[in-house]
């Protein structure tokens, strides 16, 4: 089975100049874990995920800690959140983005998701233009139907 058969055909995206605050609003209102960043001709130039934004806000040593209770200064988190709210998403997005072609086999996509620990990947056509998004649930559902 190919990505085309199972992808979500929602092409909601933002441009690189969109503010982090607005990107979060869109992700929140559409229940998205991440959103593709596109050029004016819809080529995918980046991907902004919850993780990208969290990384920008929390202190860099956060990933080494087992619990947030070890963070000595929670105010630093809040200060950073306010600080980046009006910054362009291009400063925090993952780029170059991980994308898959709409004709890619699902096994290949599953492998990418596991290796890069991503929840969703933008799907592009042969010109690199956004045509949809494939997420973990799509892959798992296909796997359970024996269609991977």
């Amino acid at each position: 089975m190919r990505v085309y058969d199972i992808m979500v055909r929602d092409v909601t995206a933002v441009t690189k100049d969109e503010t982090v605050g607005n990107v979060l609003k869109i992700m929140s209102s559409q229940l998205l874990a991440g959103i593709p960043v596109v050029s004016e001709d819809m080529r995918v130039i980046g991907f902004a995920s919850e993780n990208d934004i969290i990384k920008a806000v929390v202190p860099s040593y956060f990933s080494l800690l087992q619990s947030t209770s070890f963070i000595p200064d929670m105010n630093q988190f809040l200060r950073n959140a306010i600080l980046i709210k009006d910054k362009p998403i291009s400063e925090y997005m993952t780029h170059p983005p991980i994308v898959v072609n709409e004709n890619a086999m699902l096994v290949h996509v599953a492998d990418i998701m596991i290796r890069h620990n991503t929840k969703a990947i933008p799907v592009v056509d042969d010109q690199g233009r956004l045509v949809g998004v494939v997420n973990r649930t799509n892959i798992l559902k296909a796997a359970m139907e024996g269609a991977l």
């Binding site: 085309y4 979500v8 055909r9 929602d10 092409v11 909601t12 995206a13 869109i26 209102s29 559409q30 045509v131 949809g132």
Partner: peptide
């Protein structure tokens, strides 16, 4: 949106969501 996405692979969507 859920109903629309079931209808055809020829329909893509991008709606702005409000409260």
């Amino acid at each position: 949106l859920a109903e629309l996405s079931k209808l055809s692979p020829l329909i893509s969507t991008s709606f702005v969501h409000i409260d």
